[in-house]
Nucleic acid binder design. Structure first.
Length: 269
DNA sequence: AACAGCACCTGTAGGC
DNA sequence: TGCCTACAGGTGCTGT
């Protein structure tokens, strides 16, 4: 569920909320939410002070004094909540208790999310591509592509760019006027330029609106994002394109549902 | 090498 | 109301 803007929103709130906190204990309610040894995860973090919160792609990073480093990936339905609503109790997978008596709840109905302890921060999350928040970075990544795979699938490939998911891939391709089916290596210079600009623009705008809440995503304080009010194609199949009035289509491309305007988005310029 | 398909899970929406 | 199916924002493994 959460993509880069949602994770960035949560990370900014975590910095204000739990940085400096002492982890009094970690309690698990679903052991498989931990990648690796659950017992070691809890034991390693007990008593540590939260020193630094970071984001890499869709991963939340938590660095503790003493060097312990762990990541949280929310996958489809994971949430981090300071307060646990009664209705979420049955989806509770882990709880961090802090020295001041407050808590951080990891809630995840579908149980896809993962917490993982890493031996060191530098070697965490291998294989991720660069952050797509600057035009020059995105342009460099796109220019390297030699594959005939559809650009939609390439944008979702975390080894190419880290953090883009299904919503923002569709929105960025619409903003750039590019068909999601276009083979990546066939993008013209103009298309690469437009996509390199639209990706960071779409992501920054979504961060400014604290992410997109379609269903599960909530911030640390359980608030909804506002970016769902600003989507041009995602979730709008059958409705008129805001730009040209043609009907927005939905099709399965690269194994994922893809939303696009057949008139505004071209394979070739 | 590149890519498709499925597995991981539960909840919800829609058809009948 | 209930049963069934399809689908959901992500990733990682397996097999072709």
């Amino acid at each position: 569920m959460p993509e880069l803007p949602e994770v960035e929103t949560i990370v900014r709130q975590l910095r204000r909320s739990i940085k400096g906190g002492i982890i009094a204990g970690v309690r698990l309610y679903w052991r498989r939410s931990i990648e690796g040894c659950p017992r070691e995860f809890c034991r390693s973090l007990r008593g540590m002070t939260v020193a630094r919160i970071s984001r890499r792609g869709k991963y939340i990073g938590v660095e503790c004094s003493g060097g312990a480093f762990f990541t949280i990936h929310l996958r489809m339905t994971g949430k981090l909540l300071r307060e646990l609503p009664v209705a979420e109790r049955k989806h509770l997978r882990a709880v961090f208790s802090f020295g001041d008596g407050t808590k951080l709840h990891f809630v995840d109905p579908r149980k896809f999310g993962r917490l993982r302890l890493w031996p060191c921060r530098r070697r965490a999350c291998p294989g991720l591509g660069p952050e797509p928040l600057r035009e020059a970075t995105v342009a460099a990544a796109l220019r390297k592509l030699k594959t005939r795979r559809p650009i939609k699938g390439v944008l979702l490939d975390q080894a190419v760019l880290a953090g883009i998911g299904n919503i923002y891939a569709d929105e960025a391709l619409f903003a750039a006027g590019i068909s999601p089916r276009t083979p990546a290596a066939a993008l013209s210079d103009g298309q690469v330029l437009r996509l390199s600009r639209s990706v960071p623009r779409i992501l920054h705008a979504a961060i400014g609106r604290r992410g997109t809440t379609l269903r599960n995503y909530r911030t640390l304080a359980a608030e909804r994002g506002e970016n769902q009010e600003h989507l041009y194609v995602y979730g709008r199949a059958g409705q008129p394109c805001f730009a040209c009035g043609a009907t927005v289509e939905k099709a399965r491309i690269a194994g994922r549902s893809s939303h696009f305007c057949p008139r505004c988005q071209k394979t070739r310029e």
